[in-house]
């Protein structure tokens, strides 16, 4: 690249000029410090600061914070609801299992009861039956003995009647013999 030397020389001139100024007007003037301008710039920047502060940074930061809080809250809520749902599910399952177990135990108990009742009823029926049978037997026995004794007395009577009849009729040896034999055979 070709650099134009006179141009470079011109570059140096302002610097020398500034140095000259510094010696005459002080550092502040060289740097361009002017209290009126300084105040004006403070006011300018102050307005920018104020405007951004009031209208931009605070509202937007507030909105951001609000949104963060909102999202946080929603997430927490969702988590809580999920947890509650799980708890409810577990509770429900437990409850159902309990109910099932209870129902099972009730059924088995009922079955056992029913079995026992059946057995008892059967047993009772059997004893009743036995009792009835025994009674019947006893009655039969009694009736039999009663009938027998009755028959005996009746036979005895008949024998007596027959004997009377025969005795009132012709009573011979032969007849007598035969009659005794017959009577004996009959009573045996």
């Amino acid at each position: 690249m070709i650099i134009n030397l006179p141009h470079l020389a011109q570059l140096v001139i302002p610097v020398a000029h500034a140095a000259e100024e510094a010696s005459s007007g002080g550092v502040m003037e060289t740097l361009g410090i002017n209290w009126k301008l300084f105040l004006a710039q403070i006011v300018n920047f102050g307005i920018i600061l104020l405007v951004l502060w009031k209208w931009v940074f605070i509202p937007v930061a507030k909105k951001l914070q609000e949104r963060t809080d909102k999202i946080e809250k929603s997430l927490n809520d969702a988590e809580r609801i999920e947890k509650e749902k799980k708890e409810f599910e577990a509770w429900k399952n437990e409850q159902m299992a309990n109910a099932r177990k209870e129902a099972g135990s009730i059924i088995t108990a009922a079955q056992a009861d029913a079995g026992k009742a059946k057995e008892q009823i059967l047993r009772e029926a059997k004893t009743e039956q036995q009792k009835i049978v025994d009674q019947a037997k006893q009655q039969i026995e009694e009736e039999k003995t009663h009938a027998l004794s009755q028959a005996k007395t009746e036979i005895a009577n008949m024998v007596t009647v027959a004997a009377e009849k025969i005795l009132r009729g012709k009573l011979n040896e032969k007849n007598d013999q035969e009659l005794i034999k017959e009577s004996l055979a009959q009573t045996k």
Partner: peptide
């Protein structure tokens, strides 16, 4: 100073928009 004032106006407009 002119430049900083232009920036000031720009920022005020921007702030109003926001």
């Amino acid at each position: 100073y002119v430049n900083s004032t232009i920036a000031l106006v720009g920022f005020v407009v921007f702030a109003l928009f926001i």
